[in-house]
Nucleic acid binder design. Structure first.
Lengths: 205, 205
DNA sequence: GCCAACATACCAACCAGTTGGTATGTTGGC
DNA sequence: GCCAACATACCAACTGGTTGGTATGTTGGC
């Protein structure tokens, strides 16, 4: 669990995120990975026993890298849980910048490709998504408690639905080459949640 | 545009759909494809000049195979456009059966992998999605015309959002190994559209 | 007898993974 | 405080199998 030697292993994991998000897992070769990371293949197989082990480590690393970005965000201090959820979606929209490989989800890309061939990578990638979704559950639970809509879905289901929309948005964005279509679906998600938990009024400033 | 020799070419395209939906495009090899189709590699390269050409043909074939399934469905005859949209989602949910490779979307799988490496496959796969989405636009347009909600999104945007949710649902289903999580997101989509275009009452039977 | 539709045989490049090695610590007995 | 024994981190070169693609048949209908 301890990785006392950050540089080479981290360089390989960073290269893996970039390569897999751009070209996918299958099309990512260890040679390209090492070239991008600036190390040799011997170094790779010193740190990872196989390509599959790298896939698992990349999914875990993806969680480790992205989680603090959301955990440290200021929106958690908003008093209204519905406002916290909207602020989360605002943050997700703000992250839709740059090239597609820079904002798309590594875990979703992995799931798409390895679901039938590697149960271990599948489990690690799915865990990355559900672990992130679970950070939204308290806010949804609070919104339900404060403003229970009729036939209310569970907090867990709502949190996962947000991830579903985001994953789908990334795919459509890959079709157009830009994030506009993803923003569009995020607006639909916002509208859904606003209809489900109507905000009493627009807070000013 | 004319394919006067159905059997071998069709066998290869059917094999391509199955292989790509299971293992993805990159992990699909021409040798495996030919073995599954029961033909030799010479036959493959007689019909497709490259693997990329097969990818493009597979996306087009995917449209050709799936379009009639929706076009021939009975839900188009329902009088209420909102009921037609709900019936479309019911049909999509009914299709969530069997193995994941049997209900997931070829176009989404292709987009995920080739968006950065093959503009031609990307365009063909995206066209398959948008062409299908366009078949929903008349119903959304009618729903908007009959029941314009405040700050109404466009029919085209709503039709694409349905595809976004479906694509995301397929990815999450690949994480769990079954369709339950996809059905959950379809229910959220139904709830969104119901809130947006509230049905006056439950029609009986 | 010609051509589309296949089949067979083959290739150069590439792939994940291995091997044998070096350089640089680290540790524990004395 | 020194050194043998060991561990870690990394590298260059290689291997056996696979890959997309090609070159060269063969065959059957018109």
């Amino acid at each position: 669990m301890s990785h006392p030697h950050p540089p080479t292993r981290t360089k390989l994991l960073d290269a893996a995120l970039a390569e897999i998000r751009t070209n996918g897992y299958s099309a990512t070769t260890i040679d390209h990975l090492c070239a991008r990371a600036g190390v040799t293949k011997g170094a790779f197989f010193h740190h990872f026993k196989s390509k599959e082990a790298l896939g698992i480590a990349a999914a875990t690393y993806w969680s480790d890298v992205t989680s603090p970005m959301f955990a440290q965000s200021a929106y958690h201090s908003l008093p209204d849980p519905r406002a916290r959820i909207m602020a989360y979606l605002d943050l997700r929209e703000a992250l839709l910048a740059g090239e597609i490989a820079e904002f798309s989800c590594l875990a979703g890309t992995l799931l798409q490709e390895v679901h039938a061939s590697s149960p271990t990578i599948t489990a690690a990638a799915y865990a990355a998504i559900t672990t992130h979704a679970e950070t939204l559950e308290p806010d949804f639970a609070a919104a339900i408690a404060e403003h229970l809509p009729p036939d209310c879905p569970t907090a867990a289901s709502l949190a996962l639905h947000c991830q579903t929309v985001l994953q789908g948005a990334f795919i459509l964005a890959k079709g157009t080459g830009n994030a506009a279509i993803a923003q569009d679906s995020l607006n639909h998600l916002r509208r859904y949640l606003t209809l489900l938990f109507p905000l009493p009024e627009e807070p000013k400033s």
